[in-house]
Write a protein that binds this DNA or RNA. Structure first.
Lengths: 153, 153
DNA sequence: AAAAAACTTTACTTTTTTGTAAACTTTTTG
DNA sequence: CAAAAAGTTTACAAAAAAGTAAAGTTTTTT
């Protein structure tokens, strides 16, 4: 299981923006310097975020990027949907079919089912954490964070 | 977020094995045919699984591979630990440091914290699903599967 | 004991992901 | 209105992951 580079760095850009004043946009060189990648790469990331509507670009001399909504209104789920694909997505059956016309999935689609359930599980977490939670810096263990995992009797 | 090819196909091999009689090993050509990849690739996968102790190789004419334990005793967490890295692992801070000596993580390590918590959350799920659950083919939605996610009051 | 069937290893090709370079367009400020 | 500062696009280079080929080793069965 892997977090892609786009997800990692894209999320960091969002955190930087969440800590910024609304009327003070962050520029591409600033993103690049503060996270250690090139300016064009920062451009690529912010372009993705902008197209999705999560951030707005301010053009001109005093321009840069600002969040489109307040950090409290943005969940990790929304950010992740923009930066990458979920564990289970529409193309799954085709992606692993290879030379076969349809997937051959160990006889039946049992593996598909586990990813689908797993994905639901993950998203139930992501949709409960906001960008404000992240920016404030105290993501706590599950139990202290409003989430609890229970074993049914 | 991405499931790697090794994780996908390695898990499928384990499911195939879980559905096999103990005294009837599966051979590399059988894995290859049934999942649609080459025999050497099957060898690569099974080698990883064997080194980790999850499966045993039986050499000679009637050889092949068998599970080292019964499917009820093997959790998804164990399988995943062998086939890939978790979302948050030891090398994290170095992996994203790039040209910097240490990670620069948006001022402080807030992003690291979220992955660490996220990883705990994921593993709490993976360790409750066994290979037997998978092989039986009915992975149900969370609530019906002994797991429940609760919002704290 | 020899051959067959299976596991094992090393090296290599292909594909995808990452990341950069460079040129271009737009908007604001003096 | 021109220059500067910033966003935007296209194309390309480097690195990692995925997958294959081929040759070698071990064990069992005849």
């Amino acid at each position: 299981m892997k977090i892609t580079a786009l997800e990692e760095y894209g999320l960091r850009c969002m955190v930087l923006l969440a800590r910024q004043r609304d009327d003070d946009p962050l520029t591409l060189p600033e993103f690049a310097t503060r996270e250690g990648f090139s300016i064009p790469y920062a451009g690529k990331l912010l372009m993705i975020l902008k197209r999705s509507g999560l951030v707005k670009a301010v053009r001109g001399r005093k321009g840069g990027y600002v969040l489109a909504q307040s950090p409290e209104e943005i969940t990790l789920k929304e950010i992740f949907e923009v930066l990458g694909k979920p564990v289970f997505s529409a193309g799954y059956c085709g992606r692993y079919a290879r030379e076969h016309e349809v997937c051959i999935h160990s006889g039946d689609c049992t593996v598909k089912n586990i990813w689908q359930t797993f994905d639901e599980f993950i998203e139930s977490y992501l949709e409960q954490v906001t960008l404000a939670d992240l920016a404030s810096g105290d993501i706590s263990p599950l139990e202290e964070n409003g989430l609890k995992l229970q074993q049914k009797a």
